[in-house]
Amino acid sequence: MVLAEGVRKRFGSLEVLKGVDLRVDEREVLVLLGPSGSGKSTFLRCINHLEKIDGGRLSVDGELVGYRQSGSKLYELKEREVARKRAEIGMVFQRFNLFPNMTALTNVTCAPIHVRGIKRDDALRRARELLDRVGLADKAQSYPSQLSGGQQQRVAIARALAMDPKLMLFDEPTSALDPELVGEVLDVMKGLARDGMTMIVVTHEMGFAREVGDRVVFMDDGVVVEQGAPGEVFANPRHARTKAFLSRIL
């Protein structure tokens, strides 16, 4: 589903990604671990072209992200085409980023109606289904400021799902939440994983990684250091850096 080969990204003189190689299969739940500044969030943002990559190749579902290949040359895609591809990838942010001027329901229906051109009634019906699925059917008419952090994040997940994405990206979805609200968001994500959604999750929730993750990938200093089944990596980390990180966090 996702194939990264030597992906590089720099911000000014700071090289954040120094050649990331990674492969994510369909229906796989991949958990990205690593210390802050290791480049995992940046890598996630490269996958839907919120950040432009400076080197390497990155493709989703067999199509290059943000570029078009003609012969051996790469051309950057037009904004419209980039937007069309982004619509197929759902993204959930650390800070929720719900639209505060819209109700929960409108947050969910906005993109399907205005991007996909889905009929209003159909979009509303689907949005109510999705809100019900994340356990917020009764909050449809609430504005984000009237919802708790956990509820906002669940609306954000419903909003991403409304576009019927083939891939979901989660950028530290529970890091901004009070501890007692983390569970409700993780439960929704577990449900998604069970239903076979392809997911890439950046998180510090080791319990989630162990229980739901098909594979964990440890990143440090802009490269993939180690990867494997969660049980294996957590029990017998092979690299010193992985060991150091895990001993600090577990």
């Binding site: 839907n48 919120l50 904004e79 419209r80 937007a83 069309r84 591809k85 982004r86 619509a87 197929e88 990838i89 759902g90 993204m91 942010f93 800070r95 980023n97 719900l98 639209f99 505060p100 001027n101 906005c110 993109a111 205005h114 991007v115 954000a156 909003r159 991403a160 576009m163």
Partner: peptide
């Protein structure tokens, strides 16, 4: 307006114009 709003709108596949009209300007 928080830049996260633009990012969220873009991640949903909204074009720059649509993002401006529906998300950024109202806020």
């Amino acid at each position: 307006v928080d830049s996260g709003q633009t990012e969220a709108a873009q991640a949903l596949g909204m074009s720059r114009g649509l993002t401006m009209r529906r998300v950024v300007l109202p806020q």
